[in-house]
Design a protein around this nucleic acid. Structure first.
Lengths: 143, 143
DNA sequence: GTTATGTTTTACCACTCGGTTATTTATCCT
DNA sequence: AGGATAAATAACCGAGTGGTAAAACATAAC
């Protein structure tokens, strides 16, 4: 994971934190309410230091916060990063909510043989640009 | 990332793939339409092998698929894994859509001093269980 | 002060990750 | 066949990851 600017970096931290099944299970438990470190460790055949490391990852991603009461460190879920993930997902929601869009493109592809004229449709290139077009610097620059 | 069972393993692959800003940018570009490897590499000061590795990660997570046309390997977005993420997020959606739930708990906590009787509310322990309760095996087993 | 419980830190390990350069593979064109 | 382009693979690197056992820190009870 390479750090770029702050927003991307934070989102990367969140996704990385969610990439471990143990950490997702910890979040699921905290969704039911605050819990202590040993409560969270209960269901896993892991050492306490291992749980402590997972919690540090979750904390660094802002997914949990830890209180402090005597020797206890109660953990609670912080939903803001999950909301950020949901917001990020928003840009792709159309892809599964309009499930016919891929079928449309496929049908159009069957009717129109691959040719350079497809570039003019503005719908994104279905066929890779020709080498000549790339050589002329006409390749579409990805965002 | 430790492999457990298949569903968790796949979700972990997806989150891990999304944990890199370059890969998220690649997905954003593919959301606009199919693109070649070199088109995807264009905006990044990365070598082609680095892009190739990123694409392999995305492919293994099922987030993209790659076609084959001559020497071209056009990539397209596959939204199903993103939908799976959205579904997983669903269990936490209440946390930010009902933004008063945390305030309610906070106010209740102010009115009821920390005591063992809070265990009987079934709303999850706001205060860590007492050492005696833990010793008696009454600690709540996390999911 | 001593003992017990809860938690974190330290040091270590094997492995993965995100990048590089060099090389190979795949396809097209002359 | 040779040359060109697109892409993947191999080998290497330093940093990071997910786990362990041991040690240290924090707090409570007697």
């Amino acid at each position: 994971m390479v750090k770029h600017n702050e927003p991307d970096d934070h989102l990367s931290l969140v996704f990385a934190a969610l990439a471990d099944p143990t950490r997702r299970a910890i979040l699921a438990r905290l969704a039911q309410g605050e819990a202590t470190v040993m409560e969270l460790a209960g269901p896993f055949a892991l050492s306490l230091p291992a749980i402590s490391k997972h919690l540090k990852v979750l904390q660094r991603a802002g997914l949990i916060s830890q209180g402090r009461k005597a020797q206890w460190r109660p953990c609670r879920l912080e939903p803001a990063p999950l909301q950020a993930v949901s917001a990020w997902l928003g840009r792709y929601r159309q892809f599964w909510e309009e499930s016919f869009s891929r079928l449309d493109e496929y049908l159009r592809e069957l009717q129109e043989p691959a040719s350079g004229d497809e570039r003019s449709t503005g719908s994104g290139s279905e066929t890779p640009p020709s080498p000549a077009a790339l050589r002329n610097g006409e390749g579409a620059a990805p965002d």
